Amino acid sequence: MPGPGLTVVAWTLLALAGLALPGGTGTAEEMQVHTDPDSGLMTWHWQGEGLSLDLAQRLPDQTRAFFLGRGFDTEDATFIAGHCVFQGVLRNTDRSASATVDLRQWRSQTPNGAARPLPNRDWQDEWASREVPEVARIAFRWALFPGEHRFQPGDWLMGMIVFKHPPSTTFDLTVHWRQQTTPRQSTLPDLRCAGEPERDEAEP
């Protein structure tokens, strides 16, 4: 539910889960969009067939500061901040069935094509080439959402989900998961990466 001071736009997706999701049961999906009137940052709450996902925008400055505090130098922290970063919370809302999620199967779609979220393995290759200290690489791995995880009923996890899009990009995200042995998918429209904040021209 939205916190104090949040404006809410909510709608039910036109397709029923029974149509949008293979093997669905006809349960309608729901997506809510919350905008903080003070910061302007947006969060999305999606509820699908036995799974929910919350995505919160992270400003590039927030991402940069976070990793500067975890052993990254300015150049490498700025490199991360140049990507599209969300704080994600994924929850298995089914009371009896497990859910398996593999972010490598997810796809973000823009007019320029489709791409998957960047997994930890790709990042670790990048950090090795940049000679990032081991302690910083470990901190990054723990901050990132796991690439693959099996959720028992009621289980949840949180972490950063990073896309290879520049700040301010708008995209559709197709989420894939497996509920027990049944494959499911759904598309979350019009997600938006946070942009660089507007600065007063008088600021140095």
Results as ranks from 00 to 15, higher is better:
102 D>G: 13
152 Q>C: 07
101 V>M: 13
144 L>N: 06
104 R>C: 07
62 Q>L: 09
75 E>T: 10
151 F>D: 03
101 V>A: 11
85 V>L: 13
127 W>M: 12
164 K>N: 12
126 E>W: 13
140 F>M: 05
102 D>T: 11
177 W>P: 08
138 I>N: 04
124 Q>A: 05
119 P>F: 09
80 I>G: 03
128 A>F: 01
86 F>A: 11
119 P>C: 10
93 T>S: 12
151 F>P: 06
149 H>Y: 13
91 R>D: 00
68 L>V: 00
173 L>G: 11
129 S>K: 03
131 E>K: 14
170 T>D: 10
119 P>S: 11
99 A>P: 04
168 S>R: 14
79 F>G: 03
149 H>N: 06
74 T>A: 15
140 F>A: 08
98 S>P: 01
89 V>I: 14
136 A>K: 04
147 G>E: 06
140 F>K: 01
122 D>G: 09
155 D>K: 05
99 A>S: 12
56 A>D: 07
86 F>D: 04
80 I>S: 05
142 W>M: 13
115 A>E: 05
141 R>I: 07
130 R>Q: 02
109 Q>M: 14
104 R>F: 01
123 W>F: 14
59 L>E: 07
83 H>T: 05
72 F>A: 02
84 C>H: 05
142 W>C: 11
120 N>A: 14
160 M>K: 03
104 R>T: 09
106 W>S: 05
67 F>H: 09
119 P>R: 11
89 V>W: 12
131 E>S: 15
118 L>F: 11
73 D>G: 14
180 Q>L: 08
176 H>K: 11
128 A>V: 06
158 M>Q: 08
89 V>F: 14
82 G>I: 00
150 R>F: 08
60 P>C: 07
86 F>R: 06
74 T>C: 12
136 A>D: 01
56 A>H: 10
113 G>A: 08
98 S>C: 04
174 T>I: 10
58 R>N: 10
132 V>T: 14
98 S>Q: 02
135 V>G: 04
145 F>R: 08
133 P>A: 14
148 E>S: 15
68 L>F: 01
112 N>W: 12
148 E>H: 15
70 R>V: 00
132 V>F: 03
98 S>N: 05
172 D>E: 08
130 R>V: 00
147 G>V: 14
113 G>D: 02
135 V>R: 14
165 H>R: 13
168 S>H: 13
128 A>K: 05
142 W>E: 12
64 R>V: 04
73 D>K: 05
163 F>C: 04
116 R>K: 07
153 P>G: 03
60 P>N: 04
75 E>W: 05
84 C>E: 03
87 Q>C: 10
177 W>D: 06
102 D>W: 05
149 H>G: 03
81 A>Q: 04
61 D>S: 13
120 N>P: 03
67 F>D: 00
120 N>D: 12
73 D>M: 09
154 G>F: 01
